[in-house]
Every structure is written in C-alpha cells, then in structure tokens.
C-alpha cells in the first residue's frame, strides 16, 4: 500500500501521535521553564522534533516492509 494512503486512513492509530505529542511537548517544556513565552517556544520546537522523528521512523519501517 502507498505510504500516503496508509496515513490518510482516518482509522489509522498513528494520528493519535499528534495530540499525544502536543501534550507531551507542553508538559515537558512547562517543567523546564517558567516564562510563558519560553514554554510555548520550546514546546513548539519539541513538537516538531517528535513529529519529524516519528515520520522518519515511519518512513524507514515503510521502506523496510515494502512488498512484504
């Protein structure tokens, strides 16, 4: 199956990563800094880091499982 169509399925539980990553980023960053602006900036950066990392892992696994 095409990777994009796999991701596009609304039932795919991978989509749960996004709200999970938002929550983790905000809470983790809030525990590091006190100032609101710092917390939000760091949370945003962490969210993108997590999302990109997960996407890379997904891509690697998809390539490895190609035609399996």
């Amino acid at each position: 199956m095409n990777a994009w169509s796999l991701l596009a399925q609304s039932e795919n539980i991978l989509w749960y990563i996004l709200p999970l990553a938002v929550g983790i980023s905000l809470v983790y960053s809030a525990s590091r800094y006190e100032e609101t602006d710092s917390v939000l900036r760091r949370a945003m950066r962490l969210f993108f880091q997590i999302t990109i990392f997960m996407f890379v892992v997904f891509s690697v696994l998809w390539v490895l499982s190609y035609r399996l």
Partner: peptide
C-alpha cells in the same frame, strides 16, 4: 498522563528544571 504528572509534581516542589526562561 501519569508519568507526565511526575514532572508536574516535581515542578511544583522544586521549580522549573532549567530556569525562569530560555
């Protein structure tokens, strides 16, 4: 959720880990 609350509890006890701001 439970594990994240450990961070929140520690923050309430000892303050933010890295300092006031980035």
């Amino acid at each position: 959720a439970g594990l994240l609350n450990i961070l929140a509890i520690w923050d309430a006890f000892a303050g933010p880990a890295y300092g006031f701001r980035m």
